[in-house]
Amino acid sequence: MRVKLKFWVAGVALAISGLLLAKLIAPLYTCQVTLELLVFIAGVILAMAGLGVILAGLRKS
């Protein structure tokens, strides 16, 4: 159960970090479009990795 909890906590933390990066940090760079795009994509990848970690945790059921 504790192992699963670790996956949930890590996954949710990663997903929230990704969201913050894509939705809060990326718009700060609107004058540098390339940077904005890169930060947005990095945020998306991080959020997806978070969902992947949660899925991996579900496997431990």
């Binding site: 997903a15 990704g18 894509a22 939705k23 959020a47 969902l51 949660i54 579900l58 059921s61």
Partner: peptide, 20 residues
């Protein structure tokens, strides 16, 4: 996999993807 856990995942995935 426990259905409740799957439902929690679905809720979380919907929220994350819709925010993104």
């Amino acid at each position: 996999v426990n259905k409740t856990e799957k439902l929690i995942f679905v809720v979380l995935a919907t929220a994350v993807l819709c925010i993104l």
